[in-house]
């Protein structure tokens, strides 16, 4: 299924995704009593990186350059299948739930390969942690989407989020949907390497997870990684927002506007979480992620009741 209306939110995502980072950073700056970087700072950084040339270590193979490219392309492809607040996605087919989840998995897999390709033991450690935590986050994401699929009787993301608006007003839907939303929030924070799981600003060896893997990339490669990260933030954010705000209207522009507003509110929430919470100890992170799976399993059982 192809929907031309779905192109609008996707174009917005391609242009506006880095803005989410600046919203998060401005929120954190407000909490810290700073003024914060300019709104367009992520774009300046991308432009700066694209002008530079990349530096490659002699131990790396072409796989190292392939990593960021495939990662960015897979995330961008996944975005074509994800609806933003009820607007049908560009493409949809029954079962694209799994397709999207595994596109994200492919993106991560190639980042991990590129990290291992450098031959540095430090990057190997980062890749190890990244894979461990995403292996725990993936069941939570899949179970949450399964719950929604069961509830809305559809196997494609477009159908799931489209039907959600209609059925959500049934009173029995409240508690399970809240549980799913909580699980998706945890997955959102974990997969985007945000604070309770990973600190995006830290450069302390012992605590870094995601940042370790991308230490050796530079120039345009690094720009691709940053851009892919912002797209992933947008993608997982729209999955979460679609559940929390199941408000749908007939007008395309109104729907897209509502979705974008909610996404930026989510970015503010992320900034607040980052400001008021401390990072979890590394040994506590698995418990946190398993809690997300528990929430979604409970929601699934409640839905099937």
């Amino acid at each position: 299924m192809f929907s031309i209306a779905g192109c609008l939110p996707v174009l917005l995502a391609f242009c506006g995704a880095p803005l989410l980072f600046s919203v998060i950073n401005r929120t954190k700056a407000k909490f810290a009593g700073r003024r914060g970087a300019p709104w367009l700072q992520p774009y300046f950084e991308l432009a700066k990186l694209l002008r530079k040339s990349a530096v490659y270590s002699r131990t790396t193979t072409p796989l190292f350059t392939l990593g960021p490219m495939v990662s960015c392309a897979a995330t961008a492809t996944a975005l074509l299948f994800v609806p933003l607040s009820g607007v049908a996605p560009v493409f949809a087919f029954p079962g694209d739930v799994l397709w999207v989840v595994y596109l994200l998995g492919t993106s991560r897999f190639f980042m991990v390969l590129a990290a291992l390709d450098t031959g540095s033991s430090f990057e190997g450690m980062g890749a190890n942690r990244e894979v461990f935590f995403s292996a725990l986050a993936e069941p939570a994401l899949l179970l949450s989407l399964t719950t929604l699929a069961v509830w809305s009787q559809s196997l494609s993301l477009g159908g799931i989020y489209g039907n959600l608006g209609a059925v959500v007003l049934a009173p029995a839907a409240g508690p399970p949907l809240l549980l799913v939303a909580a699980a998706l929030l945890i997955v959102f924070l974990a997969e985007n390497a945000r604070i309770p799981v990973d600190d995006p600003t830290t450069h302390l060896e012992l605590t870094m997870i995601h940042e370790v893997m991308i230490l050796d990339h530079s120039g345009p490669d690094f720009a691709l990684i940053q851009y892919a990260a912002s797209l992933r933030l947008w993608l997982l954010g729209s999955l979460l927002v679609g559940v929390v705000v199941p408000w749908r209207s007939a007008g395309l522009v109104l729907n897209v506007l509502a979705g974008c507003t909610c996404l930026f509110l989510l970015a503010v929430l992320t900034g607040i979480i980052e400001s008021v919470m401390a990072r979890l100890r590394l040994v506590r992170v698995p418990e946190f992620l398993i809690a997300a799976s528990v929430l979604s399993i409970v929601a699934l059982v409640l839905m099937m009741r």
Partner: peptide, 22 residues
């Protein structure tokens, strides 16, 4: 009120999980 009752019951169940994990 049934929806609120359900919400309270779900919270009770989550508190059980919290006790197990804390």
């Amino acid at each position: 009120m049934a929806a609120w009752l359900d919400a309270v019951l779900v919270l009770l169940m989550l508190s059980g999980f919290w006790l197990l994990g804390s």
